[in-house]
Design a protein around this nucleic acid. Structure first.
Lengths: 186, 186
DNA sequence: CGCCTCGATGTCAGCCGCTGTCATCAGTAG
DNA sequence: CTACTGATGACAGCGGCTGACATCGAGGCG
């Protein structure tokens, strides 16, 4: 006989997304999420640093994917390296996660607090990419600009990917957006 | 005889920055800020939506300056319009505000919550710029990319402006950074 | 002058996010 | 059998934030 059902963390995440979608982020208390998952509020905070974080766990792995993409890419041109990293990171978003991503994004778009957290995560991503680029001997300012541009491309492309009616895979969209950015500044 | 001393809002802002610098953001309670300003906690929340916002009041005016710059600029090239807006917005940061900006930024850089708020403000700025560009008939995606790029240039340039030892005015720095971005993607 | 409305502030009660601390108890190692 | 581990529960408490109502100087108006 096990004392606790396994997968507490995953149950909390699922319960949270379901409640947020149904009642909104503000309209949901942590105690409620925990109860839905069969746990207590205190346990929620042992798994997630704060109420928002329950929607952002896993982002670290996504960041590592990006950095790995930069480290493995060849060549010296900053934007070419970033393009390769963008391409590699799309593995994190296969087409069958599109619906889930869309639902999650709807919750985030409905709450400024969640938007703040998302922006912080993207900012950290840009910082990590900047560092990875600098590690390759790229000039710091160029590295920062390339990283920020890469994140901007990802944001615009990701928004397109989860837009209603869109069916192209993320990788193709990102390549197209990057092309647009290039021609814009040519 | 006046019932209350005028300038409650400004007193709260000054008290907050001073306390944050001295004891950190987390180590300062709202009641403490209010008491320092000779007011009560409840009054603080009548002037600022939340504890963080006390450091970001005035950003709306900054945003209006940017949008006005876009509306007044001539020409059709998105990045040229953005460049003009960047130039106009530097009026918000004359050289004699550099020390104050530096102090404020130090407080922000020391607290993730404040960084989130700053990112949200910059994101709103990008959205406003995108709209203003679209209003001029610029393609939506191009407008979004130009706006995001403009904000990225501002961030990098602003960080340079308040860096120790830096003495060039913001306008010149921004022009240089924009030039770097252009050559990066050429 | 007296009255009245207005608006900034004070007071108080209360919810909720979040944390520290200690207890509980199945599983595991020895 | 015993000791230890580690996830969870229980509880108290602080601080951010809000709603509701009271207070009272300032300024308008008769």
């Amino acid at each position: 006989m096990v004392r606790w059902k396994p997968g507490a963390r995953e149950r909390l995440q699922a319960a949270a997304l379901e409640r947020f979608a149904a009642q909104g982020f503000d309209g949901t208390t942590v105690a409620e999420i925990a109860a839905t998952a069969g746990l207590t509020e205190r346990t929620f905070f042992r798994h997630f640093a704060d109420k928002r974080e329950v929607l952002f766990a896993g982002q670290d792995e996504f960041e590592r994917l990006f950095v790995a993409g930069i480290e493995e890419a060849g060549g010296d041109d900053p934007m070419a390296v970033v393009a390769a990293a963008l391409d590699g990171a799309t593995a994190f978003f296969p087409d069958d996660r599109r619906a889930w991503s869309r639902a999650r994004q709807e919750v985030i778009d409905a709450d400024p607090g969640l938007q703040e957290r998302e922006l912080l995560k993207l900012s950290k991503l840009a910082t990590a990419m900047t560092q990875a680029l600098a590690q390759r001997g790229i000039d710091p300012t160029a590295a920062a600009l390339a990283a920020e541009s890469g994140v901007a491309v990802f944001r615009v492309g990701f928004a397109t990917w989860i837009a209603e009616g869109e069916e192209r895979p993320l990788a193709g969209i990102l390549r197209a957006v990057l092309g647009e950015l290039r021609s814009l500044l040519a």
